[in-house]
Amino acid sequence: MTSTHAAAPPNGDRRTAKQKIAVRLEPWLYSAPVLILIVAIMLVPLALGVSYAFRDIRLLNPFSGAFVGLKHFRELAGDGAFRGALVNTLWWTFSSVILQFLFGLILALLLNQPFKGRALAQALCFLPWAVPSFLSGLDWAWMFNPVVGPIPHWLYALGIMSEPSNILSDPETAMWGPIVANVWWGIPFFAITMLAALQAIPKDLYEAAEIDGAGPIERFRSITVPFLAPTMAISILLRTVWIANFADLIIVMTNGGPADRTQIVASYIFTQAFRRLDFGYASAIALVLLVLLLAYSMLIVILRQTMLSRH
């Protein structure tokens, strides 16, 4: 684009110069509202938040606010609860994403077949997505409770549990509560994106493959998977980052307990900020999480780039 400008005749009159500026400015004018909003409402507070990580910021304490350097990060290095939260975050994020993705993909494949009542089935299967996360958390916490919910009694009847008890209060199983709720809530996201990608595959490809004698598994492997791959990669990447930051269900269902066994980094930040009102320390943790997620995303993007260039 710059080269075309350089090639323009130097004796062009003022009017075209003005027009040139207008042409250059046009995309910026369109983007301006979004940029102003994001910079003012997200980036400036983010920069402030980053600065809090190096300061002593405690709400309700008027004498706090001093610069403390790397104190929070030194504290963080020796914080056992934080290390536990890191491990729990990996566990929470990857089991949620993998299960959401698998069940979402299966649902998309099921809904991609024409059958009577498909529109209704699709609408009902996608419904959990319309439920606010906060309400889903409450609802599932309720269902896991043996006094007011059916799930423990079903598990007992199936012989999986020796007596109807609350999995959310058992440190060994507590994490499965929020994960199940998250899978229920997140299947529609993957199903919607995968179904959209499936419907974009040209039908004649399948017909041609069938004539060539390719079986259903062969067709799935050589047509469906390659066509879905780009959508899968992007949606899994975005979803992973999003779920790692997603603490609503955990805060509502277990509050990080029992014994910190469901505490993830995002909920730990929440605890530090709103229970201890220590915004300085909370910001330091958030900064570490941000760096880790950025590194993860870069890794995925580079991997994808090298895979694309190999083809």
């Binding site: 709400l59 929440f270 900064l287 999480l289």
Partner: peptide
């Protein structure tokens, strides 16, 4: 903007 916990923004905001 999609990569950090929004909790981080609440106090500065």
């Amino acid at each position: 903007t999609q990569m950090f916990p929004l909790v981080m923004l609440i106090a500065p905001m």
